[in-house]
Amino acid sequence: MRRTSNAEELFARKLMKPFREFTQVDIQNELRAVTKLCRGNPRHLVGVHGQGQLQDSPYYFIDMELCDINLEEYIYGRQALHDPCDTRKIWSIMAQISDGLTFIHNHNEVHRDLKPTNSFIFPGSFLILVLYSSEQDAWKIADFGC
């Protein structure tokens, strides 16, 4: 178990267990991919603070950067507010996600679960994001599903 975050810092802990088609091999593959890809905090991948297996149990965890909103929430939120993204913003989002995907492929890995709910924005105050989003927002890929 490895922890690199500061005290009082909020983060997201993903807890996983083998279940049906999501086997222990899948979990271990994801942990391996996380270890391999998130070393050095690449810009367009979600940062990982620690990962491992809970003591005396078949459960695994990954401690990640905490974000407030994913791409799906962003799209639907903007849609509900009747203020859809302009073309420039869409290109910016897609370019950043593509950069993250390129990084994964350059390390001989494949993201098997790329979808809007696995793309997050940093930093993430929802109201700031929805009402006054800027071009400086960083979109990152998480949950590699390897």
């Binding site: 009082e8 983060f11 802990r13 993903k14 279940f19 459960y59």
Partner: peptide, 12 residues
């Protein structure tokens, strides 16, 4: 999700 759960936590 099918994998398990995600929780917000912090170090004490």
């Amino acid at each position: 999700g099918g994998f398990g759960e995600v929780h917000m936590v912090c170090f004490e």
